[in-house]
Measured scan of single mutants.
Amino acid sequence: MLDDRARMEAAKKEKVEQILAEFQLQEEDLKKVMRRMQKEMDRGLRLETHEEASVKMLPTYVRSTPEGSEVGDFLSLDLGGTNFRVMLVKVGEGEEGQWSVKTKHQMYSIPEDAMTGTAEMLFDYISECISDFLDKHQMKHKKLPLGFTFSFPVRHEDIDKGILLNWTKGFKASGAEGNNVVGLLRDAIKRRGDFEMDVVAMVNDTVATMISCYYEDHQCEVGMIVGTGCNACYMEEMQNVELVEGDEGRMCVNTEWGAFGDSGELDEFLLEYDRLVDESSANPGQQLYEKLIGGKYMGELVRLVLLRLVDENLLFHGEASEQLRTRGAFETRFVSQVESDTGDRKQIYNILSTLGLRPSTTDCDIVRRACESVSTRAAHMCSAGLAGVINRMRESRSEDVMRITVGVDGSVYKLHPSFKERFHASVRRLTPSCEITFIESEEGSGRGAALVSAVACKKACMLGQ
């Protein structure tokens, strides 16, 4: 009897593995994704193909990295998701002549009506938060230079001027797309009239992360975010950046690689679950690469896999709870928690219980395998993109072996128990001629924006502006 049951459990697990095998990517698959990513990057950089390229390769006008001589107080704003952060950054000489960066910050959550109302409502709310922060720190009387981390696709015309191309991540505030974001912020500050600010720089969160990590390690020339969304930036040779005049030196390019796949480059790798996630998203047909990796989508992918296993009578005796059938019910943090389970399955059992399920031991094991399959594919897909960037940098610099540091931020990278190990191992397999160091950014977005502002202020002083 026991043997029969054991055989049935083994057969069930084997069927589960057959279904989950769809998520496995072979090294040849990853090399294919990497080569296609490089081709799209090239198209994004070139003037004649930029418009139709899915990977936009947006110039950021960040050319210099901090040298350690900029000092002063800077205000930093960070808008990239449902939370908005205001930070005071003091850049100065530390002990023994070292450079020191001290920060104080406060988080504000953005109400739904500000995210989806008008641009005026959104930026009025942001300036209200700045006003509140300055009151708390008794700094209303000071006109501070301000660095703005704005983590949406922007076409820069200068370091302090950028046109919002399109909202992502659930934002829909009308009247912002096609307009200068810094102008919208300046107008809102003017409307309030109770404080003055000098907006000197606007950067993407990947750029802010790279600059913040450069402060720790001067070989950091790539910034990457794996959180709600997924994106990367890197220092490109100016001669390859056709959208900006000049051939000397390097400029940081914001790849906006989340949109890779929007022209069909990933079609052969998309599964039924991916198509369902895409169809029910706020932007169907867009940001397809990001939807395979980002935390906004990972939990939902797992939920759809679990429903398939229920329908195949391989999980929960073929019956799903009402909660499990509800879109968004299986949160991405559950994926991390399930994979963090120590082996007694308590954590998995508790999560499934909150979803109205009474799982068996085998159910718990199957749910864990589903989570591992989805998150491992995410790590491997992400590795193909980064390997594409790094191999490109090595080739354009004609280096036999390139040493490089990548600064990384984002909740999936930082909080998932195995993502970074799987990701690092896969990147290294795909970049055999590179020695890569990964560092995690601390308060990256805010500190990085302030350091970019410090560079901009120093330049302005040198130019006598």
Results as ranks from 00 to 15, higher is better:
residue 4 D to S: 07
residue 5 R to C: 15
residue 5 R to V: 14
residue 6 A to R: 10
residue 6 A to V: 13
residue 9 E to L: 08
residue 9 E to T: 11
residue 10 A to P: 11
residue 13 K to L: 09
residue 15 K to G: 14
residue 19 I to Y: 02
residue 20 L to A: 00
residue 21 A to Y: 15
residue 21 A to T: 06
residue 23 F to S: 00
residue 25 L to K: 03
residue 26 Q to C: 15
residue 27 E to K: 13
residue 28 E to K: 10
residue 28 E to C: 04
residue 28 E to D: 08
residue 30 L to P: 00
residue 31 K to I: 15
residue 32 K to W: 09
residue 33 V to C: 10
residue 37 M to R: 00
residue 37 M to W: 04
residue 39 K to D: 14
residue 42 D to Y: 09
residue 42 D to M: 06
residue 45 L to S: 01
residue 46 R to G: 13
residue 49 T to L: 09
residue 49 T to Q: 05
residue 50 H to S: 01
residue 54 S to C: 13
residue 54 S to T: 12
residue 55 V to Y: 01
residue 56 K to F: 03
residue 59 P to L: 06
residue 60 T to S: 06
residue 61 Y to D: 12
residue 61 Y to G: 11
residue 62 V to C: 14
residue 62 V to Y: 05
residue 64 S to M: 11
residue 65 T to A: 07
residue 65 T to W: 13
residue 65 T to Y: 03
residue 66 P to H: 10
residue 67 E to V: 08
residue 67 E to F: 10
residue 68 G to L: 12
residue 68 G to R: 08
residue 68 G to Y: 10
residue 69 S to D: 14
residue 69 S to A: 10
residue 70 E to T: 15
residue 74 F to A: 11
residue 75 L to S: 03
residue 75 L to N: 01
residue 78 D to R: 11
residue 80 G to A: 11
residue 81 G to H: 15
residue 84 F to T: 08
residue 85 R to P: 04
residue 85 R to Q: 14
residue 87 M to T: 04
residue 88 L to K: 03
residue 92 G to D: 15
residue 93 E to T: 12
residue 94 G to C: 08
residue 94 G to V: 11
residue 96 E to F: 15
residue 96 E to W: 10
residue 97 G to P: 12
residue 98 Q to S: 06
residue 98 Q to C: 10
residue 99 W to L: 08
residue 102 K to V: 07
residue 102 K to A: 07
residue 103 T to N: 10
residue 104 K to V: 06
residue 106 Q to A: 08
residue 108 Y to P: 00
residue 108 Y to S: 02
residue 110 I to D: 00
residue 111 P to G: 09
residue 113 D to M: 07
residue 115 M to S: 13
residue 119 A to Y: 07
residue 120 E to C: 12
residue 123 F to M: 12
residue 125 Y to M: 04
residue 126 I to Y: 02
residue 130 I to S: 01
residue 130 I to Y: 02
residue 132 D to Q: 04
residue 132 D to L: 11
residue 133 F to R: 01
residue 134 L to N: 07
residue 134 L to S: 04
residue 135 D to I: 11
residue 135 D to M: 08
residue 136 K to C: 11
residue 139 M to D: 04
residue 140 K to D: 04
residue 142 K to Q: 15
residue 142 K to Y: 05
residue 147 G to V: 08
residue 149 T to A: 09
residue 150 F to G: 15
residue 154 V to N: 06
residue 155 R to M: 07
residue 156 H to P: 11
residue 159 I to V: 15
residue 159 I to L: 13
residue 167 W to E: 09
residue 169 K to L: 08
residue 169 K to E: 11
residue 171 F to C: 13
residue 173 A to D: 12
residue 176 A to I: 02
residue 177 E to N: 10
residue 179 N to H: 12
residue 181 V to A: 11
residue 182 V to H: 14
residue 182 V to M: 06
residue 183 G to F: 12
residue 184 L to D: 10
residue 185 L to D: 01
residue 188 A to E: 02
residue 194 D to E: 07
residue 196 E to P: 08
residue 198 D to A: 07
residue 200 V to M: 09
residue 202 M to D: 08
residue 202 M to K: 10
residue 202 M to G: 06
residue 206 T to E: 03
residue 207 V to N: 10
residue 207 V to R: 01
residue 210 M to Q: 00
residue 212 S to D: 08
residue 212 S to C: 15
residue 219 Q to S: 10
residue 219 Q to F: 13
residue 222 V to R: 00
residue 223 G to R: 01
residue 228 T to M: 12
residue 231 N to G: 07
residue 232 A to Y: 07
residue 233 C to G: 02
residue 237 E to V: 06
residue 240 N to M: 06
residue 241 V to D: 04
residue 242 E to W: 03
residue 243 L to C: 09
residue 245 E to I: 12
residue 246 G to F: 04
residue 253 V to M: 13
residue 257 W to N: 02
residue 257 W to G: 01
residue 257 W to R: 00
residue 261 G to R: 01
residue 262 D to H: 14
residue 267 D to G: 07
residue 271 L to H: 01
residue 271 L to C: 06
residue 271 L to G: 04
residue 273 Y to F: 10
residue 277 V to R: 03
residue 277 V to W: 02
residue 281 S to L: 02
residue 282 A to Q: 00
residue 284 P to Q: 10
residue 287 Q to D: 05
residue 288 L to P: 08
residue 289 Y to R: 00
residue 290 E to C: 08
residue 290 E to G: 06
residue 293 I to D: 01
residue 293 I to A: 08
residue 293 I to K: 00
residue 297 Y to G: 05
residue 299 G to N: 08
residue 300 E to H: 01
residue 303 R to C: 01
residue 305 V to D: 00
residue 307 L to C: 07
residue 307 L to M: 14
residue 308 R to C: 10
residue 310 V to A: 15
residue 311 D to Y: 01
residue 311 D to M: 05
residue 314 L to R: 05
residue 315 L to N: 01
residue 316 F to H: 15
residue 318 G to S: 09
residue 318 G to E: 11
residue 321 S to F: 08
residue 323 Q to H: 07
residue 323 Q to W: 04
residue 324 L to A: 02
residue 324 L to T: 03
residue 325 R to Y: 11
residue 326 T to R: 11
residue 326 T to Q: 14
residue 326 T to L: 11
residue 327 R to I: 12
residue 329 A to P: 04
residue 329 A to G: 13
residue 330 F to L: 07
residue 330 F to K: 00
residue 332 T to E: 10
residue 335 V to T: 06
residue 335 V to M: 11
residue 336 S to C: 15
residue 340 S to R: 11
residue 344 D to Q: 03
residue 345 R to W: 12
residue 345 R to A: 14
residue 346 K to G: 09
residue 346 K to W: 05
residue 347 Q to P: 08
residue 348 I to T: 10
residue 350 N to E: 01
residue 350 N to T: 04
residue 351 I to C: 12
residue 352 L to P: 00
residue 352 L to T: 06
residue 354 T to Y: 04
residue 357 L to D: 08
residue 357 L to M: 06
residue 361 T to F: 08
residue 363 D to R: 00
residue 364 C to F: 04
residue 370 A to S: 04
residue 370 A to I: 10
residue 371 C to E: 00
residue 373 S to E: 14
residue 374 V to Y: 01
residue 375 S to R: 01
residue 376 T to R: 09
residue 376 T to M: 06
residue 376 T to K: 13
residue 377 R to A: 00
residue 379 A to M: 08
residue 380 H to L: 11
residue 380 H to G: 13
residue 381 M to Y: 12
residue 381 M to P: 01
residue 382 C to D: 01
residue 386 L to G: 01
residue 386 L to R: 00
residue 388 G to K: 00
residue 390 I to G: 00
residue 391 N to D: 14
residue 394 R to T: 02
residue 396 S to H: 08
residue 399 E to R: 07
residue 401 V to P: 09
residue 401 V to I: 14
residue 403 R to Q: 15
residue 406 V to C: 06
residue 406 V to D: 01
residue 409 D to P: 03
residue 409 D to K: 09
residue 410 G to H: 03
residue 411 S to M: 15
residue 411 S to C: 14
residue 411 S to N: 15
residue 416 H to F: 15
residue 417 P to D: 12
residue 417 P to E: 12
residue 419 F to P: 00
residue 422 R to E: 08
residue 425 A to F: 03
residue 426 S to W: 09
residue 429 R to V: 09
residue 430 L to Q: 03
residue 430 L to V: 02
residue 431 T to H: 02
residue 431 T to L: 04
residue 431 T to N: 15
residue 432 P to D: 14
residue 432 P to T: 12
residue 434 C to S: 14
residue 435 E to H: 07
residue 435 E to F: 11
residue 435 E to Y: 05
residue 436 I to L: 14
residue 439 I to W: 07
residue 441 S to I: 04
residue 443 E to M: 11
residue 444 G to D: 07
residue 444 G to T: 03
residue 445 S to D: 11
residue 446 G to V: 14
residue 446 G to Y: 10
residue 448 G to T: 08
residue 449 A to T: 15
residue 449 A to M: 09
residue 451 L to H: 08
residue 452 V to N: 03
residue 452 V to F: 13
residue 453 S to K: 15
residue 457 C to P: 10
residue 459 K to A: 09
residue 462 M to F: 09
residue 464 G to D: 15
